[in-house]
Design a protein around this nucleic acid. Structure first.
Lengths: 264, 264
DNA sequence: GACCCTCCGTACGCTACCGGACGCGACGGC
DNA sequence: GCCGTCGCGTCCGGTAGCGTACGGAGGGTC
C-alpha cells in the first residue's frame, strides 16, 4: 500500500511553522489596513488542538475566534445526544457570533476539529471595536448574512445529498482551511460532524478512495486529486464558498448575486 | 421567571377582522412604546396571500415584513429544483434580514404560506431606524441571533426527526401564528415545505388524524388537540419557541440560557 | 515479543422514505 | 347535471442509510 506523505508543501508561511500572520484569516484580511492595525494588539494567538471544545453550549461566549489554519465545527446537539455540524468555521470566518449579536451565551458547541492556528479576541473588545460605521462592524454584519445563507444551504444539503457527496464537501472545506494535502482525521470524527454512522463514512471514504481522489489510512486523510474531489462533492461546496468569497469582497458581489450562477 | 401564554382568544383584534394592530407582531410589540410610536408611521399594512412569492431569490430586498397573523416560509432551492423550508417567519419574527445585515439581495425565496396580515417597512427605512444604540437595532440583532440558533436546530431536526414529527412541528408553528384552529393548507404545500413527497405528508397526516390530534380535509387543517399535537412533535418546536420567546424578552433570558432545559 | 487499544473494512437485517402511479371523491365551471 | 380538475388515500418496488456486530490491521506500551 501507499505511504502517506505528511508534509507536501512547506514553501511559504506554512500553517504549522511557528507564527501565523493575522491576515491568514480572510475575514481579518478583508479589513482596511488601518482598521486591522488598530485591532491587532488585541488579537491574541490561539492554538487549535484537534478535538478540543473551544466553546461550550450554554456557556458565556468570552472570546471570538478567527482561525488561520484550523477549523472549528459548531455542533447542534439534541436531547438524546445525537449531534450534527451546523457550520464549519474556517479561515474565512469567525466563531462566536452571538457575542456580536447581543447574545451572551452560545447556543452551539464549538469543537476545534483539525489542529491549527487562530487568533482570538475578547467578546468585550469585539463589542468595543464594532463601532457604528466601522469597517469591522460592516464586515461582521455581512459575514452574519453569509452565515445565514450558508446555514440554509446546509439545510438543503443535509436533506437531499448523499453521505458520499457531503463527505467530499466536508473534506474540501477542511482542505481549504488547513492548506495541507494531509491532515489528521478519523472516520468517527467525520461521522459525528456529518451526523451519520461511522460505518457510513467508511463506505463513503472507500468509494472516494477507489476513485483515487483521496487516500485515508488510520486517522490520516490525503487529498490526492482536488478537482476530482470537487466533482464528487455536491453543489453546496461551491455555493457556500462563493457566498463567503462575496463576504470578504472577492468579486465585489453580494451574497444573493451569486445565486443565479447556480444554474437555475 | 415568567410564563408565556399562548393566546388563542380571538375576542378582539382577530387576525381576520379588518385592521390588525402593529403589536400583534411580537417583535414590534417588544419595542419600547416611544420607539414603536416613532416607527409606526412607516409601517404599512400588507396582506399575505396564500402561496404568493413575497421575496424572490436573488432579487433586491426592498421591504422587510412583520407578519401579524400569516406566515412566511423561506425556501432554499437547489439547482435541480428541489427545495426545503429554511425557516418559517411568523408573528414572532421578521422576513428580510439581509436588508439589515448589509446584503441587498435575498439569498432565499419567501413565500407567504398561509393567508394573513402583516406590516412592511422599506429596507431603506429600516436602515435609517436601526440607529446605533436604538432599541430596534438591539432587538433585530437579538432576533438574528435567535434565527441562527433556530436554523441550527432545524438542521438537526431535518436530519434526525421523522416526517410525522416534523409535520406536527410545522402545524404547531402555523397554529401559533394564525391563531385560528382551522386554516387552509394542502398536503402538497406542506410537502414542499418539509422537502418530502406529497404522499409522505398524507401518511403522516393520516397517522396524526388517527390519533385525533388534527383533522384534515381537502385543503383544510383543523387543530383538534393542541396538547396532543405538541406531544407528537419533536423537541425542536419547544426549543425554537423558547429561543424566540427569549428574543422578545419573555423570561428575560438569553438564547443559550434555555438550552439547559432541553434535558441534557 | 506479547499485549492491548484504536481505527477501519465489511456484513446483515431493518426502517424510513423515495419515485411513480392509480383511483376515488370533492368541488367548480358551464 | 355533466365533466374536468384538484386534493388525497393508497400501493409497490427500490434504496440510502441505520443499528449492530465482528474481525483484522496499525501502532503504542511494557
Amino acid at each position: 500500500m501507499s505511504v502517506s506523505v505528511h508534509i507536501l508543501d512547506t514553501s511559504k508561511s506554512s500553517p504549522s511553522s511557528g507564527r501565523a500572520a493575522v491576515s491568514e484569516n480572510r475575514l481579518l484580511a478583508a479589513l482596511p489596513a488601518e482598521d486591522l492595525k488598530r485591532l491587532q494588539p488585541h488579537l491574541e494567538p490561539f492554538s487549535l488542538v484537534a478535538g478540543r471544545v473551544v466553546m461550550e453550549e450554554g456557556e458565556p461566549v468570552e472570546w471570538v475566534i478567527f482561525p488561520t489554519s484550523g477549523l472549528i465545527s459548531l455542533l447542534v446537539r439534541l436531547s438524546d445526544g445525537r449531534a450534527v455540524e451546523a457550520s464549519a468555521i474556517g479561515r474565512e470566518g469567525m466563531a462566536g457570533l452571538p457575542a456580536f449579536l447581543g447574545g451572551t451565551l452560545s447556543p452551539l458547541q464549538g469543537i476545534s476539529q483539525v489542529k491549527g492556528g487562530a487568533f482570538r479576541l475578547s467578546a468585550a473588545r469585539l463589542r468595543r471595536e464594532t463601532l457604528p460605521g466601522s469597517a469591522l462592524r460592516a464586515l461582521v454584519e455581512r459575514y452574519t448574512n453569509g452565515l445565514l445563507a450558508a446555514a440554509a444551504q446546509s439545510l438543503a444539503c443535509i436533506r437531499f445529498h448523499r453521505v458520499e457527496e457531503r463527505c467530499a464537501r466536508w473534506l474540501l472545506v477542511t482542505h481549504d482551511s488547513v492548506r495541507e494535502n494531509t491532515f489528521e482525521l478519523t472516520h468517527e470524527f467525520l461521522a459525528n460532524m456529518l451526523g451519520v454512522r461511522r460505518a457510513g463514512v467508511s463506505e463513503a471514504v472507500g468509494a472516494l478512495s477507489d476513485r483515487g481522489v483521496i487516500r485515508s489510512v488510520r486517522g490520516h486523510f490525503t487529498i490526492a486529486n482536488r478537482a476530482g474531489l470537487e466533482a464528487a462533492s455536491c453543489e453546496c461546496y461551491r455555493v457556500v464558498r462563493q457566498e463567503m468569497d462575496a463576504v470578504v469582497g472577492l468579486g465585489g458581489g453580494d451574497v444573493g448575486s451569486l445565486l443565479r450562477q447556480r444554474g437555475l
